[in-house]
Simulated assay, not measured.
Amino acid sequence: MTVSSPDSPTALAGDARPALLEARALTRQFGHGRTAVHALRGVSLDVAPGRLVAVRGRSGSGKTTLLNILGGLDLPTSGTVRINGHDLGALSDRHRIMLRRGTVGFVFQSFGLIPYLTAAENASIPLRIARTDAAEVRERVARVLDQVGLTGHAEHRPAELSGGQQQRVGIARALAQGPQLLIADEPTGHLDTAQGLQILALLREIADSENTAMIVSSHDRRVADFADEVLLIEDGRIGGQ
């Protein structure tokens, strides 16, 4: 695990693989004038395939704002984000959505499951939105549920699952379209210690086995044990430990 330097983009020494995600000099300002909030202040980072980068910081430090911009859910006030060489800020809204759907998977703290759908149905949502063939939907959902250890729970609804199992469904949903980049915002925030460690281990396993670029935000120091690199963010800036 490497703790990043504040003076350069975060890239592991000796890792010659090109970055899938490149962010340069990101700023994000909300409002104007004296009441403006500067959520990000010049953040730069790289994430290569198969690497898990952790973003640590207290509530309000800028973690979620950063992840939203890296995943194309929001645009920076200044700076650039490139995914597979595509500048997100230069794309139309439509093309940015298309790139996001085909390349980026999201895992959220609150799980975001639809309560009346089964685990399999929840995991299939992005595939159904993309109008994937029904036979392929079944095959992909079976594969991702197996990957997250929920083969025997495919027909269970969220209320019938533990918190850790619900988060595994959320991860399966994020994996369903085979994303090259997975962004997880406080994925252990609603879990106890044991379940949280299991989810972090699962994310590490996915990064390794699927060669997925991964960025995980957390206020929990334990995330460092599973990361290749740790970014420490405070007041919208990346700093040393």
Rank of each mutant, 00 (worst) to 15 (best):
residue 5 S to I: 09
residue 12 L to T: 10
residue 17 R to I: 09
residue 20 L to I: 13
residue 20 L to P: 09
residue 22 E to I: 09
residue 23 A to E: 05
residue 23 A to D: 02
residue 31 G to F: 11
residue 38 H to C: 04
residue 46 D to P: 01
residue 48 A to C: 15
residue 49 P to S: 14
residue 49 P to L: 08
residue 50 G to Y: 08
residue 54 A to H: 11
residue 55 V to R: 01
residue 57 G to S: 10
residue 59 S to W: 09
residue 59 S to F: 08
residue 63 K to A: 00
residue 67 L to S: 04
residue 67 L to I: 03
residue 69 I to H: 00
residue 69 I to F: 00
residue 71 G to T: 00
residue 72 G to N: 07
residue 73 L to S: 07
residue 73 L to N: 02
residue 74 D to G: 03
residue 76 P to Q: 11
residue 83 I to M: 01
residue 85 G to S: 10
residue 86 H to V: 10
residue 91 L to Y: 01
residue 92 S to P: 05
residue 93 D to N: 13
residue 96 R to Q: 10
residue 96 R to H: 07
residue 97 I to L: 13
residue 101 R to V: 05
residue 102 G to T: 12
residue 105 G to C: 12
residue 107 V to K: 00
residue 108 F to I: 07
residue 117 L to A: 08
residue 117 L to V: 05
residue 118 T to R: 11
residue 122 N to S: 03
residue 125 I to F: 09
residue 129 I to Y: 14
residue 133 D to E: 15
residue 135 A to S: 15
residue 138 R to P: 08
residue 144 V to F: 09
residue 148 V to Q: 09
residue 151 T to D: 07
residue 152 G to A: 11
residue 153 H to S: 14
residue 153 H to V: 07
residue 153 H to I: 04
residue 154 A to C: 01
residue 155 E to N: 15
residue 157 R to A: 10
residue 162 S to L: 06
residue 172 A to M: 08
residue 174 A to P: 11
residue 176 A to F: 04
residue 176 A to W: 02
residue 177 Q to V: 11
residue 177 Q to N: 15
residue 180 Q to Y: 04
residue 183 I to C: 03
residue 184 A to M: 06
residue 189 G to K: 00
residue 190 H to Y: 03
residue 195 Q to K: 11
residue 195 Q to H: 14
residue 197 L to G: 15
residue 200 L to N: 04
residue 202 L to N: 12
residue 206 I to N: 06
residue 207 A to H: 04
residue 207 A to V: 06
residue 208 D to T: 14
residue 210 E to F: 09
residue 210 E to P: 01
residue 211 N to D: 12
residue 213 A to H: 04
residue 223 V to Q: 07
residue 223 V to C: 10
residue 230 V to P: 04
residue 236 G to E: 02
residue 238 I to C: 11
